[in-house]
Nucleic acid binder design. Structure first.
Lengths: 126, 126
DNA sequence: GACAGTGTATCGCAACTCTAATACACCAAT
DNA sequence: ATTGGTGTATTAGAGTTGCGATACACTGTC
């Protein structure tokens, strides 16, 4: 885990860290209630500043994936299926709304977007 | 036109200018072959630097909406329906791909996204 | 060829973002 | 109360981006 942090990538370090953890949490590689590496430990092992790890952890906390408890550590959050479903809906809706706004900005019709959506999905699902 | 430029908005001035022009072009308020205000004129009337207007115009040029001709001016581009269709497809695809990548990052399934999409659009997809 | 219009190029400064450095505050065990 | 773990907060510096200032180059008309 955390083998490929690229300091020169346009995606900031904290975002790279957050993303890898997010995947690990979603796949249950890091199960609920599991304690994440401490800010200092992870920072040391990644040769990165503690504040950078904090930024990653805080992002995950904002997204509801983890809970930071001062003096104790950072833990994968346990969420009920319904909570989790609602959260996923919220995030998905947010992304879709942004897509539609951007499309409108470019003068694209919803039909253009829908077609592209179906096309891209078709290639994935097969 | 251009009544409400907000220098303190997080969206940069050049983007605000570009967006308003984009809308005017798409709605045919600025028809094909129409000449846009010169860089200097628009800059003066917006009390903004010419380079900022240039940046907006160049963005529109990259998107295929206008054509800048040195010494002559900047003009709304005339595109054949098929060209325009292809361009719209390209842009829509780009947006959708970004959406799917972001969704994957958040651990959302394509099903989550599809449902949000249908919810926002109020119509069935696929 | 001069001129008055057009876009182009380059530089510099201010604001913002990312990251690091460092000091602080909390918690649990001893 | 001390200690060694944890997260928190503040500040500073490097890099990036937005914007302005200014000088340059092209085009059509006279």
């Amino acid at each position: 885990m955390f083998e490929q942090l690229d300091p020169r990538s346009p995606t900031p370090l904290y975002a790279q860290i957050a993303e890898q953890l997010r995947v690990a949490i979603v796949t249950r590689e890091l199960p609920p209630a599991e304690m994440l590496p401490s800010v200092r430990h992870l920072a040391a092992s990644l040769r990165v500043n503690p504040a950078t790890v904090v930024q990653a952890y805080r992002a995950l906390e904002d997204e509801g994936f983890v809970e930071m408890r001062q003096g104790m550590g950072t833990f994968v959050r346990e969420v009920s299926p319904s909570q989790r479903g609602a959260e996923r809906d919220r995030q998905a809706t947010e992304l879709v709304r942004r897509l539609l706004v951007d499309a409108a900005r470019l003068g694209l019709s919803t039909r253009d977007v829908t077609q592209a959506f179906e096309r891209e999905l078709g290639e994935r699902v097969r």
